[in-house]
Amino acid sequence: MPPEADALLQASRIDAGYGTMQVLWGVDLDVRPGETVLLLGANGAGKTTFLKSLVGLVAVRHGSIRLGHADITKMRSSARMRLGMTYMSELAVFPDLTIEENIRIGAQALGHPDPGSRLDELYGLFPALRDKRRDAASSLSGGQRKMLGIAKALAAEPKLLVMDEPSAGLSPLFVKEVIRILANLRGRGLALLVAEQNIGFLEVATRVFVLEGGRIRFSGTVAEMNDNEALHRAYFGLK
């Protein structure tokens, strides 16, 4: 795929895997500034491997990754973070540290000049965390930990937030809360790449890519996906 002039993130023809096992085959994906891109796929489709290749936790065997004007294909994870990319895994937080310590670590990861002011902003977005800020993250419910994980990832004010299965382990009520939070983040200049199997996240997406068997099977707008009846039947069992 040729580089998109307006792309913040451009992954082109990505092959990756573990040892002798190849997981990704020629994956193309781009994220533009300020948009929310949803990477949909079932368990085992290769979503986590792809995200880890973007952030430098899995080596790319073939292809290239650009963030802005920089080729980050072979950069260390820490260097990618300094360029404005943060990664929220399923675990997301340090359970033995307090809520405030987790958020401060997130702010320091990209060298935020004033972590204290950032704390106040994030407590405004996540008021439930303010009253518990001195408590260990391990004391939180699964849904509250997910809120903390999002706050920690946002603490350094990244350009791009990469999220792996934010709905994992959550009740339907908390999944709706995560979707609400992501909807509120739109329009703040932050780009999001969200890997999910829950189609409820289509509600907040600008564009969607469907990954199956380590290959992109569809890419387009949410409207285009909704119009594709064969895709719905094949991947989501929808009529």
Score class of each variant (00 low, 15 high):
Pro2Met: 09
Ala5Gly: 02
Ala5Asn: 09
Asp6Gln: 06
Leu8Arg: 00
Leu8Thr: 06
Gln10Phe: 10
Gln10Met: 05
Ala11Lys: 02
Ala16Cys: 03
Gly17Met: 10
Gly19Phe: 11
Val23Met: 12
Leu24Asp: 00
Trp25Ser: 13
Gly26Cys: 07
Val31Cys: 04
Leu39Val: 13
Leu39Asp: 01
Leu40Arg: 07
Gly41Leu: 09
Gly41Cys: 10
Ala42Leu: 11
Asn43Phe: 10
Gly44Gln: 07
Gly44Asp: 10
Gly46Ile: 10
Gly46Ser: 10
Leu51Glu: 04
Leu67Cys: 02
Gly68Ala: 07
Asp71Glu: 11
Lys74Asp: 09
Met75Tyr: 13
Ser78Gln: 13
Ser78Cys: 03
Ala79Cys: 07
Met81Asn: 13
Arg82Lys: 14
Arg82Cys: 01
Gly84Val: 04
Gly84Pro: 00
Thr86Ser: 12
Tyr87Arg: 05
Leu91Asn: 14
Val93Tyr: 02
Phe94Ser: 12
Phe94Cys: 12
Asp96Ser: 14
Thr98Glu: 04
Ile99Ser: 02
Glu100Trp: 01
Glu101Met: 12
Ile103Gly: 00
Arg104Gly: 03
Arg104Ile: 15
Gln108Val: 13
Leu110Arg: 15
Gly111Phe: 11
Gly111Trp: 08
His112Thr: 08
Pro115Ala: 11
Ser117Asp: 14
Ser117Glu: 15
Leu119Met: 14
Glu121Gly: 06
Leu122Tyr: 09
Leu125Gly: 07
Ala128Trp: 03
Leu129Ala: 07
Leu129Val: 11
Arg130Ser: 08
Arg130Gly: 01
Ser138Pro: 02
Ser138Trp: 10
Arg145Leu: 10
Lys146Gly: 06
Met147Pro: 11
Met147Val: 05
Ile150Asp: 00
Ile150Ser: 00
Ala153Asn: 04
Ala155His: 09
Ala156Gln: 04
Lys159Gly: 02
Leu160Met: 07
Leu160Phe: 12
Leu161Thr: 03
Asp164Tyr: 14
Glu165Lys: 14
Leu170Val: 05
Phe174Leu: 15
Ile181His: 05
Leu182Thr: 08
Leu182Ala: 05
Ala183His: 14
Leu185Thr: 03
Arg186Thr: 13
Arg186Ser: 13
Leu190Phe: 03
Ala191Tyr: 10
Leu193Gly: 00
Leu193Lys: 06
Val194Ala: 03
Ala195Asp: 08
Asn198Lys: 06
Gly200Gln: 13
Gly200Phe: 00
Leu202Glu: 05
Thr206Pro: 01
Leu211His: 11
Leu211Trp: 12
Gly213Tyr: 11
Gly213Gln: 12
Ile216Cys: 06
Phe218Asp: 08
Phe218Gly: 06
Ser219Tyr: 12
Gly220Leu: 03
Val222Lys: 09
Ala223Phe: 01
Ala223Gly: 05
Met225Asp: 02
Asp227Tyr: 01
Arg233Ser: 10
Arg233Pro: 09
Tyr235Cys: 07
Phe236Asn: 08
Phe236Ala: 00
Phe236Tyr: 15
Leu238Cys: 01
